[in-house]
């Protein structure tokens, strides 16, 4: 029996008000367990991004329960949510979101820098992870000198550097070609197997479904079914 990392029940989220209101999440219920990779799929506009924003505390939701690592995020105030997120959650975005002003090492070390960790130790850790994602040569390169795949690998390293419990990936492969996308997914899978980290991957790309352990199908703001993969 795996331990529950994420427990969601009946999450409802509406954008806007009155006539302009969009009911993006209509009661989402989902459990995600430690060490698994959960694929979250569904048609465009069904609410995937909204869902991961809500569970990571980037977006407030109207009602429902959301416990991460046994903590109810609705009971925390804004600063607590920010601190909790910084400590326990890592992100990989479709558009990489690296800071162009920083080198790879600095980018990877960012979550530790934010947490006021020792600089030398942070950089050492960042370098270890850059080695692990195959970018040992690019410590001091700026993102603009990297390919899309390389940038996404830097982003993966950054998501891992502070040893979070949960990594949220929103369309991590959509900006990459097929092969690069596969490489990034293999990397995530490898990290998951080594560290028993929990990963949620939002995707459209059926060629990466195979990396998941389970898959949640979302439609019109609801989870329709969850299936076991492999």
């Amino acid at each position: 029996m795996s331990k529950t990392v994420l427990h969601c029940k009946d999450i409802v989220k509406t954008y806007g008000e009155a006539e302009a209101a969009v009911l993006a999440l209509q009661g989402v219920t989902l459990d995600v367990y430690r060490g698994e990779m959960m694929m979250l799929v569904g048609p465009s506009g069904c609410g995937k991004t909204t869902f991961v924003s809500c569970i990571s505390g980037l977006l407030d939701f109207d009602s429902g329960v959301c416990d991460i690592l046994g903590k109810d995020i609705t009971s925390m105030d804004t600063e607590e949510v920010v601190a909790f997120r910084g400590r326990h959650i890592g992100f990989v975005f479709q558009s990489f979101n690296l800071l162009p002003a920083l080198t790879c090492v600095e980018n990877v070390a960012l979550p530790l820098t934010i947490a006021n960790a020792d600089k030398a130790q942070s950089y050492t850790k960042a370098k270890v992870l850059l080695d692990a994602v195959g970018l040992g040569e690019k410590y001091d390169s700026k993102p603009k000198h990297l390919s899309g795949g390389e940038q996404q690998r830097v982003a993966v390293a950054r998501a891992l550097v502070h040893e979070p419990d949960l990594i949220i990936c929103d369309e991590p492969t959509s900006s990459l070609d097929h092969q690069t996308g596969q490489a990034v997914m293999q990397l995530l899978q490898k990290m998951k197997n080594e560290t028993h980290i929990t990963i949620i991957v939002v995707t459209h790309d059926n060629r990466i479904y195979k990396y998941g352990d389970r898959m949640a199908h979302m439609e019109d703001g609801k989870i329709r079914k969850v299936e076991q993969l492999g």
Partner: peptide, 16 residues
């Protein structure tokens, strides 16, 4: 702003 949003997502407090 985008960079600040990113830093905030990664746990930067409003004071930082």
């Amino acid at each position: 702003l985008k960079y600040y949003a990113l830093l905030k997502a990664m746990g930067a407090s409003s004071k930082q």
